Lab assay of single mutants.
Amino acid sequence: GMDVRRLKVNELREELQRRGLDTRGLKAELAERLQAALSGPSSG
């Protein structure tokens, strides 16, 4: 899988935006949010 901790802030935001998620917050928050999205149930 993707290691969200290795991504830069702008990369985290890009991935979040692609999934329609909130791109605001600290890098740690963005990484946590993206990780949750990646490990969560895949819809679609």
Rank of each mutant, 00 (worst) to 15 (best):
E32G: 07
E11I: 05
G20A: 02
K8M: 08
E15T: 01
K27W: 15
T23M: 02
L16F: 00
N10C: 13
L34N: 01
L34Y: 02
R19W: 04
L34M: 02
E32Y: 05
D22K: 06
E15V: 03
P41R: 07
E14A: 14
N10H: 14
A28R: 11
L34D: 00
A36N: 12
R6D: 09
S43R: 10
E29F: 02
Q35H: 10
A28M: 07
K27H: 14
E14L: 11
L12V: 02
E29I: 07
V9I: 14
M2A: 07
Q35E: 13
V4R: 04
L7I: 04
V4H: 05
L12N: 00
T23A: 04
D22V: 06
L21F: 00
D22R: 05
L30D: 01
L12T: 01
V9T: 09
Q17I: 07
S39P: 07
L12I: 08
R24A: 15
G40H: 11
G1W: 07
S42M: 10
L30P: 00
R6E: 09
T23L: 00
D3H: 08
S39G: 14
R13G: 02
G40P: 11
R33Y: 02
E29V: 09
K27V: 11
Q17V: 07
R24M: 13
E32Q: 12
A37H: 11
P41S: 14
G40Q: 13
E32D: 11
V4N: 04
S43G: 13
P41L: 14
R6P: 04
R6W: 07
Q17K: 15
S43E: 12
A37Q: 05
L34H: 00
R13H: 04
A28C: 12
T23D: 14
R18E: 06
R18K: 15
R24D: 15
L21V: 05
E11A: 06
G1E: 11
R18F: 05
K27Y: 13
R5E: 10
Q17S: 12
E11V: 06
R13Q: 07
E32A: 15
K8G: 15
N10E: 15
E15Y: 04
M2V: 12
R19H: 08
R13P: 01
E11D: 07
Q17H: 14
D22A: 06
L7P: 02
V9E: 10
R13Y: 06
A31L: 15
R6G: 10
A31N: 03
E11S: 04
G44A: 12
G20H: 06
K8E: 14
R19A: 05
L30E: 02
E14W: 10
V4F: 05
V4Q: 03
R18P: 01
R13V: 10
G25V: 00
G20E: 04
L34S: 00
V9Y: 11
L38K: 04
E14M: 11
G40L: 09
N10A: 14
A28D: 14
G1L: 11
M2D: 07
L34V: 01
K8P: 08
S39A: 13
L34T: 00
M2H: 08
G25W: 01
A36I: 10
D3A: 07
M2L: 14
A37N: 06
E32I: 10
Q17N: 11
N10P: 09
A28N: 12
L38A: 04
Q35G: 07
A36Y: 05
L12F: 01
G20R: 03
R33V: 02
R24T: 15
K8D: 15
L7W: 06
R6I: 09
A37Y: 11
R18H: 07
R13W: 05
G44Q: 13
L38S: 04
